[in-house]
């Protein structure tokens, strides 16, 4: 069993200022024992990927409520792959119509959590996803 703490970056890409969800999730992940870095607002995909790599994060959570989700998920996942970091878990949430979710998952997102999701669901999913990822690395 890998005892390293889970490291996760919670990111707000683009110009969207709705940060309630990102901050609540960041706190819930922290309370669940993870090491959480919250980027703050107005991050470009390049800045987010840079933070993820610098922080040696297991995962990055993206919060978008502006409708620009497809653009940012695809871009961030693409940049991670370019940097040979395609194994980093990408998940997210926000105001995202159900019909857009399959496209995000196909692009490489591990999970997309809609409004009303309990933070405990998010925590459990991430714990399992990181455990699976670490198991593969060994």
């Amino acid at each position: 069993m890998d005892e390293r703490k889970i490291r996760v970056v919670v990111a707000k890409p683009g110009l969207d200022g709705h940060d309630r969800g990102a901050k609540v999730v960041a706190r819930a992940l922290r309370d669940a024992g993870m090491e959480v870095v919250y980027t703050g607002l107005r991050q470009t995909p390049e800045q987010i990927v840079e933070t993820v790599l610098q922080e040696d994060a297991d995962a990055v959570g993206i919060s978008i409520l502006s409708g620009a989700h497809t653009f940012y998920f695809t871009k961030i996942i693409g940049l991670l792959k370019e940097k040979d970091a395609g194994d980093i878990i990408v998940f997210g949430g926000g105001v995202i119509p159900d019909k857009d979710i399959p496209g995000l998952l196909e692009a490489g997102a591990g999970a997309v959590f809609g409004p009303g999701t309990p933070t405990s669901v998010c925590v459990e999913w991430l714990e399992k996803a990181v455990a699976d990822k670490r198991a593969k690395e060994q």
Binding site: G14, L15, S66, A68
Partner: peptide, 10 residues
């Protein structure tokens, strides 16, 4: 460049 993906969205 900062406007990419956001035009006309909200």
């Amino acid at each position: 460049p900062m406007a990419q993906g956001e035009c006309g969205k909200v």
